[in-house]
Simulated scan of single mutants.
Amino acid sequence: MRDKREDLELVRTVVLARHGARSTLCYLEELGPSTWNDPKLFKAPDFVKQVKVNWTDVGGGDPPKGQFSGGILPCGGQRGELTHRGYIGNSKIGEYLKTQIDIKEEDIYVRSTNTTRTVESARAIIAGIFNKPMEITIETPANNNDDFLTLHNSAKIAMAKLEWTWSTPCLYEPFQEKMSKIIRTVGLKKRAEGRQSQFQPIGVYDDYMCRKEHDLIINKKEKLDSVAEDLEELAVLTKHIINGIRFFLKVILTKCTYVLII
Results as ranks from 00 to 15, higher is better:
residue 95 E to Q: 15
residue 85 R to N: 13
residue 132 K to H: 10
residue 57 D to E: 09
residue 17 A to K: 00
residue 52 K to G: 00
residue 7 D to Y: 13
residue 84 H to V: 13
residue 142 A to K: 11
residue 45 P to G: 13
residue 126 I to M: 14
residue 41 L to R: 13
residue 83 T to W: 08
residue 28 L to N: 10
residue 87 Y to E: 02
residue 131 N to G: 04
residue 62 D to F: 11
residue 37 N to G: 08
residue 60 G to A: 06
residue 143 N to D: 14
residue 95 E to W: 05
residue 65 K to P: 01
residue 31 L to G: 04
residue 33 P to H: 10
residue 49 K to G: 03
residue 58 V to P: 00
residue 10 L to R: 07
residue 129 I to Y: 09
residue 39 P to G: 02
residue 72 I to R: 06
residue 31 L to A: 10
residue 110 V to N: 05
residue 97 L to R: 12
residue 27 Y to E: 13
residue 20 G to M: 11
residue 45 P to R: 06
residue 95 E to N: 04
residue 13 T to P: 00
residue 109 Y to N: 13
residue 24 T to Y: 01
residue 5 R to A: 10
residue 70 G to S: 05
residue 143 N to V: 12
residue 63 P to D: 04
residue 87 Y to P: 00
residue 41 L to H: 01
residue 129 I to D: 02
residue 137 T to G: 00
residue 120 E to R: 10
residue 120 E to H: 12
residue 17 A to H: 14
residue 29 E to I: 07
residue 53 V to A: 15
residue 86 G to H: 01
residue 92 K to G: 01
residue 43 K to S: 06
residue 129 I to H: 01
residue 143 N to K: 11
residue 62 D to N: 08
residue 123 R to Y: 01
residue 73 L to W: 06
residue 1 M to S: 14
residue 135 E to R: 05
residue 20 G to F: 03
residue 143 N to H: 09
residue 78 Q to R: 13
residue 31 L to P: 02
residue 38 D to V: 00
residue 35 T to C: 09
residue 3 D to T: 05
residue 121 S to C: 00
residue 96 Y to T: 10
residue 27 Y to K: 10
residue 22 R to Y: 04
residue 131 N to P: 06
residue 90 N to H: 14
residue 82 L to A: 05
residue 48 V to D: 03
residue 32 G to C: 07
